[in-house]
């Protein structure tokens, strides 16, 4: 269970990114967070990965108050979350295989585990034949799939997707969204932030609309409405 309790986030004195956020996300849910650019979607997600601290309130991740995580515990917390971004954030000097393997290397998994898991997950995202390609040799859709494979390879409880289709054409967008739905079906909680109306309407799951740092609507099986 993920829970935002009375969360405020203020960057500068006048720049209030989030105010009075109260959200509960149950395990296995697929939640779309919608809103225009600059309304605080990314900040909301960054609180989960503990890239940001709330100015007030608490963020609870499976019974852990993220505000109380120590520097040492932080890497372990991040291994429980998979993250994908609009700009993919792949390591340019590493191949597809190495990019995905990296997430496992980081968590100290054995070489045998890596050799078993990485090809499997790359098959799942449909990149079984691109092991040795570098990111620059892949299309946008393929790069995002590498990122998804990387975020999933250590079986995180939650997958956070921050505008994952922002750089993709329609066909690739559908493919990525389908992949996210499939991942959710397999049990992973998915939190998707987007401002793409068509995508959200098609998914037809819970939608939380944010405007100016506040939750303005929270609907099961919602549509993109602001």
């Amino acid at each position: 269970m993920i829970e935002y309790r009375d969360v405020d986030k203020v960057y500068d004195k006048d720049l209030k990114a989030l105010s009075n956020i109260n959200i509960k996300i149950k395990p296995g849910e697929f939640v779309s967070i919608v809103g225009q650019s600059g309304t605080g979607k990314s900040t909301l997600l960054k609180l989960l990965t503990r890239e940001e601290f709330p100015t007030a309130g608490r963020v609870i991740f499976y019974d852990i108050d993220l505000g109380e995580l120590s520097k040492k515990e932080l890497p372990f917390h991040r291994r429980r979350i998979g993250v994908i971004f609009q700009d993919f954030k792949l390591l340019p000097a590493r191949t597809t295989y190495e990019n995905v393997a990296f997430a496992l290397e980081v968590s100290g998994k054995s070489s045998d585990e890596i050799k078993k898991n990485v090809p499997q997950i790359l098959d799942i995202v449909g990149l079984g034949n691109k092991f040795n390609s570098y990111p620059r040799e892949l299309s946008g859709g393929e790069q995002q799939r590498v990122a998804i494979a990387r975020s999933l390879v250590h079986h995180p409880e939650v997958l956070i997707a921050d505008e994952p289709t922002g750089n993709l054409d329609i066909i690739n967008t559908w493919e990525i969204i389908d992949l996210l739905l499939k991942i959710n079906k397999l049990g992973t909680t998915v939190v998707l932030a987007t401002h793409d109306k068509e995508t959200v309407d098609r998914i037809s799951r819970r939608v939380i609309a944010i405007d100016d740092g506040r939750v303005i609507r929270d609907q099961e099986q919602g549509k993109y409405m602001l």
């Binding site: 990965t49 890497p75 954030k89 980081v106």
Partner: peptide
């Protein structure tokens, strides 16, 4: 710096 950011996001410890 981008690489370091990614490393930390996938849960790499500072020493790693």
């Amino acid at each position: 710096r981008a690489e370091v950011e990614i490393m930390r996001l996938v849960g790499a410890s500072n020493w790693f």
